[in-house]
Amino acid sequence: MTEYKLVVVGAGGVGKSALTIQLIQNHFVDEYDPTIEDSYRKQVVIDGETCLLDILDTAGQEEYSAMRDQYMRTGEGFLCVFAINNTKSFEDIHHYREQIKRVKDSEDVPMVLVGNKCDLPSRTVDTKQAQDLARSYGIPFIETSAKTRQGVDDAFYTLVREIRKHKEKMSKDGKKKKKKSKTKCVIM
């Protein structure tokens, strides 16, 4: 069974824990209790493949930012979460993405942009803004509501699919490099 290491990042209060708990335990946590770091595991079937999701729910508070490099190193894919009623959390996505790329030393890291709290009427981040940002990053965008469960499975499952595509691409690139290195030079 394939294991996928997913990391949920975003500013404090955007609903990272609520999304994760909704996926794992099928219930909505409405009281806000700032996370330092929590880890969850769940076995699911995605596109006919049974897999184990190892999900790291991270601290959004700035005082825990020193811990970010460590979990970013171990993560295979990242859910970059903002709240649709919090423009600052949307603007912060850029910083999370840049930090992930720096730590992973790669421009090509599996990510999904997630606009959470889409059940709320007080939207300050337009869907088109988020779609445009995701398009500019070359990553999928999904709106979710941890409260109603809308888009929750889709967000995590899409990230797994992005990781699969990335692994497939990397193995193809690896095979191309191996083929090239088999060419021999004969000096007579």
Rank of each mutant, 00 (worst) to 15 (best):
T2N: 11
T2P: 14
L6N: 03
V8A: 09
G10S: 13
G10T: 01
G10P: 02
G10A: 11
G10W: 02
A11K: 12
A11Q: 05
G12K: 04
G12V: 10
G12Q: 15
G13Q: 13
V14W: 11
V14I: 10
V14R: 14
S17F: 00
S17H: 00
S17E: 01
A18Y: 00
A18M: 11
T20N: 03
I21D: 02
Q22I: 08
L23Y: 13
I24K: 01
N26G: 12
H27W: 14
F28P: 01
V29T: 11
D30S: 13
D30A: 13
E31I: 13
E31A: 15
Y32T: 01
D33Y: 01
D33G: 01
P34K: 02
P34S: 03
P34G: 01
T35N: 00
I36S: 00
I36D: 00
E37I: 01
E37A: 03
D38H: 00
D38M: 00
Y40E: 00
Y40W: 15
Y40R: 00
Y40C: 00
R41F: 03
R41E: 02
R41H: 04
K42S: 07
K42W: 05
Q43G: 11
V44T: 11
G48M: 08
T50L: 14
L52F: 11
L52H: 10
L52I: 14
L52R: 15
L53G: 10
L53S: 14
I55W: 01
I55D: 00
L56G: 02
L56H: 02
T58L: 01
A59W: 00
A59L: 00
A59R: 00
E62N: 07
Y64T: 02
A66E: 04
A66C: 13
A66R: 07
M67K: 03
R68C: 05
R68M: 03
R68H: 06
D69Q: 15
D69R: 08
Q70C: 07
Q70E: 04
Q70H: 08
Y71E: 15
Y71V: 07
M72Q: 09
M72Y: 07
R73I: 09
T74M: 04
T74L: 05
T74S: 10
T74A: 10
G75I: 04
G77N: 02
G77R: 01
G77V: 05
G77C: 13
F78G: 01
L79E: 05
V81I: 07
V81T: 12
F82M: 09
F82V: 13
A83Q: 12
I84N: 15
I84H: 13
I84S: 12
K88Y: 03
F90G: 10
E91I: 15
R97W: 12
E98C: 11
E98S: 04
K101M: 14
R102C: 15
V103L: 11
V103Y: 04
K104M: 13
D105M: 15
S106D: 13
E107D: 08
E107L: 06
E107R: 08
D108Q: 07
D108M: 11
V109N: 07
V109Q: 02
V109G: 03
V109C: 08
P110R: 02
P110T: 04
P110W: 01
M111Q: 03
M111V: 06
M111R: 01
L113F: 12
V114D: 02
V114L: 08
G115V: 12
N116I: 05
C118T: 10
C118Q: 05
C118D: 12
D119S: 12
D119W: 03
L120K: 08
L120C: 07
P121D: 13
S122C: 09
R123H: 10
R123S: 11
R123K: 11
T124W: 07
T124Y: 09
D126W: 07
D126R: 05
K128E: 06
Q129Y: 14
A130H: 08
Q131K: 07
D132M: 06
D132G: 06
L133A: 09
A134F: 07
A134D: 09
S136T: 08
S136H: 12
S136R: 07
Y137G: 13
Y137F: 04
Y137W: 14
Y137A: 10
I139C: 09
I142V: 10
S145E: 15
R149S: 06
R149V: 09
G151A: 08
G151W: 07
V152M: 10
D153K: 07
D153P: 06
D154Y: 05
A155Y: 13
A155T: 07
F156C: 10
Y157M: 06
L159Y: 02
V160D: 03
E162V: 04
E162M: 09
E162F: 04
I163N: 02
R164I: 06
R164G: 07
K165Y: 10
K165E: 05
H166W: 08
K167I: 05
K167D: 06
K169T: 12
K169S: 12
K169F: 14
K169R: 07
M170L: 05
M170C: 05
K172H: 09
D173H: 15
G174W: 03
K175Y: 10
K176L: 06
K177R: 05
K177Y: 03
K178H: 09
K178V: 11
S181F: 07
K182M: 03
K182P: 13
K182L: 04
K184T: 03
C185V: 14
C185L: 02
M188F: 12
